[in-house]
Design a protein around this nucleic acid. Sequence first.
DNA 1: ACCCAGGGTCATA
DNA 2: TATGACCATGGG
Length: 223
Amino acid sequence: MTRRTRPHIRHAYRTLRAYHGPQYWWPAETPFEVMVGAVLVQNTAWKNVERAIANLREAKALEAHALLALPETSLAQLIRPAGYFNVKAKRLRHLVEWYREQGGMDRLKYRATASLRESLLAIHGVGRETADDILLYAFHRPVFVVDAYTRRLYHRLGVMDGNEGYESLRRLTEEALSESMPDMNELHALIVAHGKDICRPRPLCSQCPLCADCAYANLAGDL
DNA sequence: ACCCAGGGTCATA
DNA sequence: TATGACCATGGG
């Protein structure tokens, strides 16, 4: 990791923002819906999650008490389009049980970010990315979400050697964005929006970030 | 037919 | 710490 890491990240952010425009994330109506979506989207295309959420909405189960009232097999059937439905049904129940036990948003919103993060990570089925999705998009805390696309992008930018851990990349990005929550919101959304257009040669070319088949380099020009 | 998608857990070394 | 198996639907 070089000291030129921050300028690289900030430049990528400006470039993506100019190219794609504002993203207005997270696509959900309520914080509770953000939390449900964060579990459902694990290793899954968002399009499939939309169907699962629509099913929950139609069943009026997009609320803690109603969702927990469903038998697990019924819940699993409702979220079936999102894949891994048996696993995710359990994870949703764990998350929503926690949510209710903690007193819902009315109580949770006063908790310190570090305490909330620890508490979320202790839930079975909530890993770092899911916890940070929830912290950023449901609780509006200044926490950056590191995903597979972020790693791919940072490889292209040459700011990663390949084995950087999650926490390291998160802190690095939070510092590069001067701890600004709106910027963390936008950058993660933009990285996902750019998605597969972040090139991924196998193996990674050593000349990057300027290889010819890199769509990101094409739009970034001088990267 | 294959690969991928806005991961996480568990067993194993 | 670091791999690999497993979970499962839907779109390209």
